[in-house]
Write a protein that binds this DNA or RNA. Structure first.
Lengths: 229, 229
DNA sequence: TAAAATACTTGATACAGATCAAGTGTTTTT
DNA sequence: AAAAACACTTGATCTGTATCAAGTATTTTA
């Protein structure tokens, strides 16, 4: 393929994607790239709501693509979280850092997941969190103004986010109850059972932090479990 | 007043409120009671979205009023949570019970708050939670079919619940981080600072459970804090 | 208003998981 | 390819919170 080895990062520097759509019949490499990108997000959205071609075209105009290299920040503590992002590829994490400098993982997001500091994004207040890339990532970003406009102009997206947030509440509640009621070992085995890909993909020290454990404790738990098996 | 001392509980036994509205110009005691009930819920909804008179009238038809005496169950573990409820008056709690018989508080809801097992309500699967009244309560209940129909017929309510769920995510995330990153004492002082009414209104053993502590530990923390002050 | 049940307190002890420390193994950087 | 940085493991010890136990205070029930 002619494009192989080509550094595509320049393709993601446009502030908006809409001009690409205006290219109309011109099926060039740039457009193909963009079409491919939105296929992931639309397939996820359309698991929950129906979208017309017109709505899809409109939705695209609100998003900006962005690439993030491993360890690169999307958001740093003290800044306002200006974007809600959809992960097309790669892996992001959000975390906060306590007075002792210890990181506490809040979330992970890979292909098909959204990432943001919901509070900072919606309130435009400074964030207490950091977001960065655990693996090189390709993102679709929407700002608050775009988000609000999109929800008003496309009622199906209002519905989509209501459903998305509903599911988020359910999973957060489970994590919270697990964190309050279970032992370290139970928390780990439950996470491993419910979300095996997370264990495979995310470094162990981050899993430990996500569960509210020290890396040493998780290491010992894993040793004990593998000995028992 | 002629009605004082009158047991009004019979007023709440109608399965739906709509026939009352159909009474039209007949301003009777029942209708006044119902109008009063919905004032609380509408004032809360209209803090977030605008509703026309017609929309309000339609919304009312989806809700059933219900009274609950202290200690009475709204939901028991193993049953499907058939209703999303709005608390007009009183105090509800949701909790689960572990293998050892220990209760773990998940939520509290008083005037102006919603209560449900979101997962069970939406999926119609058996609930792992219990919901009961900590104080005598007056509720407005909506079932899943009504909820879905209401959101489709009144887009403002779709929007309202998206915003409600958004805020819920933010507060759950905070509680989760607090539970993972802070000591017992920090958790308590933060809750007391953020939500003083909760400390005043809810029994101490339930607050302890809500924070993932034993009643003994919370008692000792409070003693220590009052000594320091 | 007495009795029973429940909520809260205080003390002694136990233990899960944290911390501190020092190692090995594995990436990343140069 | 060497060096540095980072991730993981293992051991020894410490500590915050749970547990067990027995009391007092308060609320509920009869």
């Amino acid at each position: 393929m002619a494009g192989s080895g080509f550094n595509t990062s320049i393709l993601f520097k446009y502030p908006h994607g809409n001009h690409v759509l205006q290219a109309g019949a011109c099926i060039c490499f740039i457009q193909l790239t963009f079409v491919w990108m939105f296929e992931v997000i639309f397939s996820h959205i359309q698991e929950k709501v129906q979208l017309t071609k017109e709505e899809q075209a409109l939705i695209k105009t609100f998003f900006t693509p962005k690439k993030l290299r491993k360890k690169q920040y999307l958001l740093q503590e003290g800044d306002v979280c200006r974007y809600l992002v959809f992960v097309e590829k790669g892996l992001l994490r959000s975390y906060n850092v306590d007075e002792k400098g210890v990181e506490h993982m809040i979330h992970f997001a890979w292909e098909g997941w959204w990432m943001s500091d919901t509070y900072s994004f919606l309130s435009a207040e400074a964030s207490a969190y950091n977001i960065d890339a655990v693996e090189d990532a390709e993102l679709l970003m929407i700002n608050l103004q775009g988000f609000e406009e999109m929800l008003l102009k496309v009622p199906a997206m209002e519905r989509y986010f209501r459903i998305l947030f509903q599911n988020n509440i359910i999973s957060k509640e489970r994590r919270l109850i697990s964190s309050i009621t279970h032992s370290a070992e139970e928390k780990y085995t439950q996470l491993a059972a419910a979300n095996p890909q997370m264990i495979q993909r995310i470094p162990q020290n981050m899993i430990a932090s996500y569960l509210g454990l020290t890396p040493e404790t998780l290491s010992r738990i894993r040793k004990k479990l593998s000995a028992g098996a």
